[in-house]
Amino acid sequence: MTSRQQRAQAEVGKNPSLRELQTWMVERLQHDRDLAKTDDFVAESERVLTGNDGLLPVETLEIYREQYWLRHTGALLDDFPGLSGILGQKDWERLVQGYLGAHSPGSFTLRDLGAALPGHIEQATYLPHHSLCVDMARLEWAYVDVFDALDTTRSLDADRLGAMTEADWETAQVMFAPAATLLKTRFSVAPLRRQLKRSAAIVDDGGKAPDVPLPKRQNAYMLLYRDRQRNLNYAEQSRGAFALLGHLMNGDALVPACGLAGKDVPSEAKDIPGKVGDWFAHWGKLGVIVDVVGR
């Protein structure tokens, strides 16, 4: 950091107000280098803090700065094991430093820390395997949302479903579990994430996890959901099934949704009506469809 940038930052006097003090401290704690190595920080800490027998004032502040970075890096690592697995230590650290520098944590919960990471990665074109990283970050953030989405008390009634007439399906709305979402990616990142997590759990004596081959480009259409034990899971869908799910989740009734899905995927259009029964059974079994309500 240049001295001009430092001067633009908050200054603090001997008797600061609470806001002045806290503004000054937040800026210092979010600084990305050891504070004790910059003369200005040493001098201003001297004005505000006492230090103790073993530590200079700036060194007592540095304890908190170090913890700030370790805590937030750790929280992102928890939520993005696939992304960190693709990048490896050095690129991961660079990414996280840039991210936290651009997106100061503001939520009361660390759970929200990665909310802007997928967007940030889109811009971080310097990253190796950039497109793959974009997809992985989108998947992992979607998982964060699915993980603690609202539970549902509804359950699908097979008898009522069986009694539905063709006319009912023209208007009935399919209700989905809140912990279910769709994600289309350019790489098959869900199986890759699973492999990377498994690999990270097998670290050899040298601290190295076994290499996981990265996938080639191939579109993936995924339904992300929580299973009945509340574990995260994914189910790959055909393009037709994925398109139909998208329209149903938008609130379209089954019959019009089939028509719209056919338009989205003309190559599968004629097969969709014949497959809908199996698809419904599959989604119901996963706990993704929780009700069908007449309108």
Partner: peptide, 22 residues
């Protein structure tokens, strides 16, 4: 070793989800 500790230990999180599937 230096590492950031969080009061309450690890969160129950998507990344650490014990379901083997995801």
């Amino acid at each position: 070793d230096g590492h950031g500790w969080v009061q309450g230990g690890p969160r129950e999180s998507a990344g650490a989800d014990h379901g083997v599937s995801a």
